[in-house]
Amino acid sequence: MAKKLKQIAIYGKGGIGKSTTTSNISAALAEAGYKVMQFGADPKADSTNTLRGGEYIPSVLDLLAERRRVDAYEAIFEGFGGIYCVEAGGPQPGVGCAGRGIITAVELLKQQRVFEELDLDIVIYDVLGDVVCGGFAVPVREGIAEHVFTVSSSDFMAIYAANNLFRGIERFSNSGGALLGGIIANSINTDFQREIIDDFAARTDTPIVQYVPRSLTVTQAELSGRTTIEAAPQSAQADVYRQLARRIAEHTDSKVPTPLNPTQLREWSARWADHLVAAEQAEAERSRQVA
């Protein structure tokens, strides 16, 4: 009896830290002995860079552009800890259809039964920031990923994006698609940031899988073309990623998300904005008194 493959998709606003977080999760899972594939579903094709010394690999669509037929294995490259790295790739910005590109790349691996043949434990899809069209929703359709995690900071824009994503997942979950696993709260360093993201999580009844602080270790590791797990295995940040990876590996039950509607979201953020202004005024007042 074949083991059950776990397929996970990571979504979130552009630049929020999806690829960084995903690569560290993959690295930590590989370190723990899992057979992992990381699938970059983003035309930038940079998802797996820090798993491969900062180097770009040819994407599925690069290969397809050269030739009509692609053997899926031609697009799979081994990275840190034996992680199988794949980049979907896509057309140049401003031309072609990137969404169709993602569909094609996902179909190609599925059709050629690569996941079964490689006997994987976990596949993680690192999906482009905004789910702009049907193509970018492919990883959460029935039969592909069953759990979605969203990376969000406490910035309102990131939270809006997360809430939008919840709406997308809600739609797909009705038709057998993926369910929401939880929020990975990235760049959370202060109590205040934590309060904001906690409140959003509570309002949408979503678990927070892990708080990940913003850390220079991550930047340094990235500059050396590596994940934090590889570059600074002893660091506290690496342990945060290990804990996150463990939770994801053990995660079994996802749920249909309950996003805020647009009015609720506006009211929610307005309340926090007032709160922020009040806090800032109090802070200014205090520093004036001190002076």
Binding site: G99, C133, G177
Partner: peptide
């Protein structure tokens, strides 16, 4: 092309 989820 536009990726309709016809299956669902």
């Amino acid at each position: 092309l536009v990726g309709d989820d016809v299956g669902s």
